[in-house]
Computed example of a mutant assay.
Amino acid sequence: MSPRRPERRSEESANAVIRAAMELCQEVGYRKLSIEGIAARAGVGKNTIYRWWPSKAAVLLDGLLSTWRVDASFPDTGDFAADIKAQMTAAARLLGDPDVLPHYRALIGEAQHDPELHQALWDRFIGHLAGAAVERIKAAQRAGQIRADADPVLVTELLYGAAYYRMLLTPRAVDAGHVSAVIDLALAGLAPSQG
């Protein structure tokens, strides 16, 4: 799922569509969100929306990406545990925002049935963060802070998987305490051998 289609002529109308989609999704939920409703709220025809986006999910993804200010870089203070805790806590704060979380959950749910959206979420958002995490893990391995034989992709999945499990499948929030506990527990098993 590519970003908005290039033949879009009116940035003002496109912004109105995105704003309408975000507002309506907040008001009625993703399941009741419709292209017709977005078009009516934005004051454009639904054919205009379909010229620019293939689906309501694509509009919502653009809306989230336009409001998120996600820094994919990881700090490197020399303390891997502190650095990853800081980055994961910041990500949890952003994604756990009550104005963001319902939209993000809806997109993740929709992506399970829409391969194009699934790929777009990876290409345009999650993949950048995961790649940055992998690079920070490799730096920690080079510095002897975690086991050199641990697969950095698997470590990323281990650490972030716990946060996504809590965010998507439980009523509990991902907060600094949760992030810290997960990382401390994981790093105990990732510590380099003392021998």
Rank of each mutant, 00 (worst) to 15 (best):
A133C: 14
A143W: 02
P115Q: 12
I137G: 01
R142N: 13
Q141L: 01
G127Y: 09
D149P: 02
G144W: 10
R136F: 03
P115H: 10
I126G: 01
Q145P: 00
A133L: 14
A133Y: 09
L117G: 05
D123A: 12
P115L: 13
E116V: 12
G127L: 06
F125Y: 15
E157V: 11
G144P: 11
G131V: 04
V155R: 06
H128L: 14
L158I: 12
H128C: 00
E135D: 14
A132N: 06
A130K: 09
G131D: 07
Q119E: 15
W122N: 12
L129S: 10
G144T: 13
A120G: 11
L129M: 14
D123H: 09
A132G: 13
A132T: 05
A139Y: 00
L117C: 11
A139F: 00
R142I: 00
W122H: 13
L121T: 02
H118F: 15
G127F: 06
A140T: 03
A148S: 15
A120P: 09
R142Q: 15
R124W: 08
A140Y: 04
A140G: 02
Q119D: 14
L121F: 06
E135I: 02
A148H: 12
G144H: 12
W122L: 10
A132S: 15
G127R: 08
L129P: 00
L121E: 03
E135C: 01
Q145D: 03
I126D: 02
L117V: 10
P115G: 14
I137D: 01
E116Q: 15
K138D: 07
K138T: 07
D151E: 13
Q141C: 01
D151P: 00
A140R: 02
Q145S: 04
A148Q: 15
I126N: 02
A133E: 10
A130H: 14
V153F: 12
D149K: 06
P115V: 11
V155L: 08
A143M: 02
A148L: 14
A150S: 15
G127M: 08
R136S: 09
R124D: 06
I137R: 03
F125N: 11
H118V: 00
V134Q: 04
P152T: 09
I137Y: 05
P152G: 07
I137T: 08
I126E: 01
L154A: 15
E135G: 03
G131Y: 03
A140I: 04
Q145E: 12
A132C: 07
A133M: 14
Q119K: 14
V153L: 15
K138P: 00
Q145C: 03
T156D: 14
L158H: 09
Q141R: 03
E116A: 15
A143T: 00
A150G: 08
G131C: 03
Q119F: 09
G144Y: 11
P152C: 10
V134P: 00
R142G: 11
A139C: 02
R142W: 02
I146Q: 01
G127D: 08
Q141Y: 03
R124L: 06
D123I: 05
P115R: 12
L121M: 13
R142C: 04
A132R: 07
L117M: 11
Q119G: 10
